[in-house]
Design a protein around this nucleic acid. Structure first.
Lengths: 262, 262
DNA sequence: CGGGATATTGAGTTAGTTCAACACAGGTGG
DNA sequence: CCACCTGTGTTGAACTAACTCAATATCCCG
C-alpha cells in the first residue's frame, strides 16, 4: 500500500476574512473576458442580488470541508484553489484545480454535505452566494439555471479527462497533460503573459493530483523539463513547444469554450 | 508506457433498434422504487411529452460516440451501460457504469459534442428525449431543471470517488471498492436478490475502470475472492461480509440518496 | 469442429514506491 | 546577526506492485 502523502495544510482553517461588498457584478473584471458569455441586464441584476458579499482568504485556507455542509456557494473572483478528497489514512487525491470564474460548492446546495474539501493555493477572493436563494434562480431565471447545469456538466467533463489521465496515462504523459491543461485554463482567464503563467502549486500538489508519489513526481518533472518543451522556474511556467507537449500528453480537446459566469 | 487494452467492441455500432413507444412514464417501473423522488402530476405530464420514444439496443452496442454529437438524450429504462474515453493508441478508461434510472448524454445538450462514448453491457432499453426540447424544460419546470443540475452534480460526485480510487487506492482496495459500489447501486434500483446481483461485465471492463492491466486485475480479483468476503461466479456477485469489504475498500459514503428520475 | 471472447497462470521486466539524506530559502526568536 | 526550524526541492539506492509476454483452459456459438 502506498504511504499517505504527509501534507500539512500550512494555515489552520481560514484566516483573515473580510465580508465587505466590493466588486459590483456589473464591473466584474472577469465579465470582460471573452471566455464568458454576456448576461442580460435582468440576469446581471439578479446575480447582483444573489451575491451577498465577498470573502478574502489567505493561501492554504480550507474553504469547504469534506463531511461538512455550508450555507454558501462561491465563485472565485481571483486566486487559485483546489478540490480534494482524502482516505482515512491520509492519502490525498486532488480532484481538480479551481481558477477565477470557477464555481465552488454546488454539491452543498444539492446534497447538503460536501464529500470533498476545497483549499486555497493563493490569497483568494471569493464571491459569496447564499444557498437558500438558489431556488429563486431556478424559478425566475431559466437561463441562469441552464448555466448552472452547464457548469456542472463542464466539471464533469474536466473530471473525465482527469480520470483518463490518472488511470491510463504514463507519469510523463500525465505531467505534460496537467501542465498544459492548467496553462490553457489560466490563459483563458487572463492569467497568462505571453506564454508564461505563474503556477502557485508545489510538486506535492502535482503528485496528489496525478496519483504519483512526491519523489517520482519530482523525477518525472525533471525529465520532462530536460526536454526543453517548457520551463518552470521560480514559480513561473513557460510554454516553449506547445505542439510537442500536446503530442506527448495525447492532448485532444481544448476545453476552452464560451462559458457562463455566475 | 502501458500497452493499449485491446478490447474489441463485439458488436458494431448499435444493432436492432426499435423506436416504438411502450412504457408510459406514469407506469414507469422505476418510479415505484423508493430511490426516486415523486413527481408532481404536471411534471409527469411534461416528461411524458418530453419523451419521444424508446430505443432497444443489443449488448455491446455504442449508444453515443466520442467526438460526435447526438440529437438525443437518454435515460436507461433497463440494462447496464458504461461511459468511456480512449487515448489515440487505444488505451481505454471506463469513467463509470450506468444503471437503470441513469441519465446519458447531458454533455450532448450542453456542448454539442460528446467527449466520451457510451456502450451497453447488456440488452438495454433507453427512453429517448430530443435535446431541442430541453430548453422548454428549463422555462416551464424549474423543479425538473433543478433535478437536471442535481443529476449532473451526482455524476460529479461519483467521478470524484472514482478518481480517488484510481489515483490513491491500491489494487485490492480498488477492486473491493468498485464491487461494493456497483452492488449498492444495483441494489438501489432493485436489481439485487438478497445479497446477490448479476454483474454483466468482464474482467476487462473492471481493468479499464480501475486503471489496471487485465492480468493484474485477474490476480487481484482472485486474491480478493480468496478472502471469502464475497463471491463472483457464473456472472453472479454475492456479498458475504459487507463490513469487511467496506473496511478494506475504505468505503465511506453511501451515495444512495433520494434522487430524481427524468 | 473451429474461431473468438474470456479467464487463468507463470516468469521476467519495469515503472513507480519507499526510505533516507542533503540542499536551499524564508521566517522567527533570542 | 545568528541559530534554528519548517517547507520545499533533489538525488541515490533498494524494493515491490503492477506490467508485459506467453501459454493454456474454457466456453459459447455458428
Amino acid at each position: 500500500m502506498r504511504s499517505p502523502s504527509k501534507t500539512k495544510s500550512s494555515t489552520a482553517p481560514a484566516a483573515n476574512k473580510i465580508a465587505t461588498r466590493q466588486t459590483p457584478c456589473l464591473k466584474c473584471p472577469l465579465r470582460a473576458l471573452k471566455t464568458f458569455r454576456e448576461f442580460q441586464p435582468a440576469e446581471l441584476e439578479f446575480v447582483e442580488w444573489f451575491k451577498t458579499g465577498e470573502f478574502a482568504s489567505d493561501e492554504g485556507a480550507t474553504i469547504l470541508m469534506e463531511g461538512h455542509s455550508s450555507p454558501h456557494l462561491y465563485t472565485i473572483l481571483s486566486g487559485w484553489a483546489f478540490r480534494h478528497k482524502t482516505l482515512p489514512d491520509g492519502r490525498r487525491q486532488i480532484l481538480n484545480f479551481a481558477l477565477p470564474g470557477d464555481f465552488l460548492g454546488l454539491q452543498t446546495s444539492m446534497f447538503n454535505e460536501m464529500q470533498h474539501s476545497v483549499e486555497t493555493l493563493t490569497k483568494t477572493v471569493l464571491c459569496v452566494f447564499p444557498r437558500d436563494k438558489i431556488w429563486s434562480l431556478y424559478e425566475k431565471f431559466p437561463g441562469l439555471a441552464y448555466d448552472l447545469t452547464w457548469i456542472a456538466a463542464r466539471s464533469e467533463r474536466l473530471l473525465d479527462e482527469q480520470l483518463l489521465s490518472v488511470g491510463r496515462r504514463s507519469a510523463q504523459e500525465k505531467m505534460a497533460f496537467v501542465l498544459l491543461h492548467l496553462f490553457y485554463r489560466a490563459q483563458a482567464v487572463g492569467l497568462a503573459t505571453g506564454n508564461k503563467v505563474v503556477f502557485p502549486f508545489t510538486q506535492q500538489h502535482l503528485a496528489d493530483s496525478l496519483g504519483l508519489s512526491l519523489v517520482h513526481t519530482n523525477k518525472t518533472l525533471k525529465a520532462l523539463l530536460a526536454r526543453k518543451w517548457c520551463r518552470w522556474k521560480d514559480g513561473t511556467f513557460e510554454l516553449v513547444d506547445e505542439a510537442a507537449l500536446r503530442e506527448l500528453a495525447c492532448y485532444e480537446g481544448d476545453l476552452a469554450s464560451l462559458r457562463p459566469l455566475i
